[in-house]
Simulated scan of single mutants.
Amino acid sequence: MQNDFLGLDGRVVIVSGAGGGGIGTAVTAMAARAGATVLAVSRSPENLERHVGPLAAEGLAVVPVAADASTDEGIATVMDAAGKADGELHGLVNVAGGAAPATWMRSTRVNREDWRALFTQNLETMFFMSRAVAAELKEQGRPGSIVSISSISGMNTAPYHIGYGTAKAALVAATRTMAVELALDGIRVNAVAPGVTETPASGTYVDQDADRDRRAIAMGRRGRPEEQAGAILFLLSDLSTYITGQTILVDGGLNLKWSHLAADNTTLFLKDESFRAAITRE
């Protein structure tokens, strides 16, 4: 009954960036349990085996797809797999993105190579993957839902992380424009902007400090990947058929307080002082 209510039975959902063990993996599991056939896309076969393999072993309709969604060849591989999947294409979740700790620095130190790499990773990958899925849905004359991961950094300021924050803000703008263009085709385009979430990727520069979390976040704790996945599943499903062009902040109220910046405007969530010193140097 729940699966019928969500409306994902018999539908194919692509999750780009499914193999990291964080939000993408959680979305893959949740969508499959809601009845979808999920194409779990990652450029790392090892990550697919580690994080997605157990889901398939449970008997869930999860199809691992090793492909780099930042390339035309990778997107073609994904779309070929979608054409062969059991069910009708319905949704896309763009999780692939992020930024390595080495990309944190003052704006005056950012070079073109770093800037372009962040935009490729966080904006181009989302746009061209969305473009391919939207074109296929239009050709089939089918409605659908595209959901992309922005960030709280794209909804406000991102001190010492300007490339990432700006790319995520551009993702929000692209979401709004595509939503208008595709609305009459029945294709909805939305985004989710996570706050601080406990994922393997965030663990590379964020440490554990429950007292600080209580001070900085209205709900007093960090989010879990499954809580981001819940919002994404809502936007994928027939529960949200009149919602398009929106970016939903899923941050536990972090944006309401916005008190997580230290006196030097670096985020209080940074793991260690040596990292703080490295990113703020002239």
Rank of each mutant, 00 (worst) to 15 (best):
R222L: 10
L261R: 04
D264L: 07
T247F: 06
Q228T: 11
Q228R: 06
R212C: 11
L235W: 02
A216D: 14
N255F: 12
L268I: 08
L256D: 07
R215S: 15
E227A: 10
T267Q: 07
A218I: 07
I243N: 01
I248M: 07
I217Q: 05
G245P: 08
S259F: 04
P225C: 08
A216E: 13
S240V: 01
A216Y: 04
Q208K: 15
L254P: 06
T267W: 07
A210G: 04
K271H: 13
K271A: 15
Q228W: 08
L239K: 00
L261M: 11
L235Q: 09
I243W: 01
Q228H: 05
L268H: 02
S237Q: 02
L239D: 00
L249Q: 12
D272H: 14
Q246L: 07
L261K: 05
L239T: 00
P225Y: 11
S240M: 07
L239F: 00
D272K: 15
G245C: 08
M219N: 04
F269D: 13
Q246P: 02
Q208H: 15
Y242M: 05
R214H: 12
L239W: 00
L239P: 00
R222N: 06
G252H: 08
L268G: 02
A218K: 05
D251S: 08
A263Q: 14
I243L: 05
R222A: 09
R224F: 02
M219T: 12
A229N: 07
A218F: 03
G220C: 13
Y242L: 00
E226R: 14
K257Q: 09
R221E: 11
G245E: 10
G220P: 12
G245Q: 11
L233A: 10
E227L: 05
S240F: 04
L236R: 08
R222T: 10
L235T: 08
I232G: 03
Q228Y: 04
D213C: 14
Q246V: 11
G230V: 02
A210Y: 10
S237H: 06
T247E: 09
G230A: 15
I217R: 01
L239S: 00
L270A: 14
D209Y: 14
E227G: 04
V250G: 01
D211W: 07
W258I: 01
V250A: 11
I232A: 04
L233M: 09
A218S: 11
I243M: 08
I217D: 03
D251I: 05
R221K: 15
D209E: 14
D213W: 15
T241P: 00
M219P: 04
N255K: 11
